[in-house]
Structure formats: C-alpha cells, structure tokens
Amino acid sequence: MSGSEPGQNPKRAHHDLGGVAKFLCERVDTAPYALTLFDRRVDALRQILGASGIMRVDELRRGIEAIPEVEYHRLSYYQRWVRSIVDNLLRKRIITAAELWAALAARDGGGQ
C-alpha cells in the first residue's frame, strides 16, 4: 500500500468525491427537499434528449464535470444539468448561442 492520502490527491477531478478529506467533517443534510417544477422539467428534458438519441447521459455527465469547481459546488444539482445540456447542444450544433440569446431577449422584452 502506498503512503499517499487519496482524500487529498491533487490529480483527482473535482467531481470525483469519494473520501475527499475536505468534506469528511461536513454533516449530511438529511432533511427532505421536494423537487421544484424547474427540477422536474430539467430532468424530463434530459430524458427526452436521451430517448431521442440527441444527448446521452454520459455526455450530460461530461458537461457537468467540465463546470469549474467553485461553480460546481455553488450551483444546484439541476442548475448544473442546465449548464451541461446547453453546452452539449451547442457543441452538437443542435442550437446556437445566437438562438439562445434571441430567446432570452424575447422573454425579457415580452415581460415574461
């Protein structure tokens, strides 16, 4: 057995959390949290994109893992998913940034 401390391995990716020392003293929040409608809708979209062959769950994970560490821990679970889904659909040219910006502007301007 090597003497290294796996909980402090500098080579690990930041999502690779097993045994990581800095969380060992953090208590687990065991309180029940109901999912919001936003959470459910993001989850449903992920499933639809998977079922239609547009984006695999492995691609979702890759996109989540690509979120910088500070953001990764700041964003909620389904906020990370939105980041990843957008990133994947942009990479695959299913959508473009210009289309997203236009849709955001339309929503702003439309008072929604």
Partner: peptide
Amino acid sequence: TTPPDLLATPAEALFAALLDVL
C-alpha cells in the same frame, strides 16, 4: 440590448430560453 453572457445567465432563465429554442 446586449445579449447576456450565457454563463452568467441564471439557469432558470437559460432553461426557459432553451425550451423556447427547442
């Protein structure tokens, strides 16, 4: 208006826009 930077956009707004596009 200048389009907001996508990464700075709150996920809820970005998701709504994404659904519009899709």
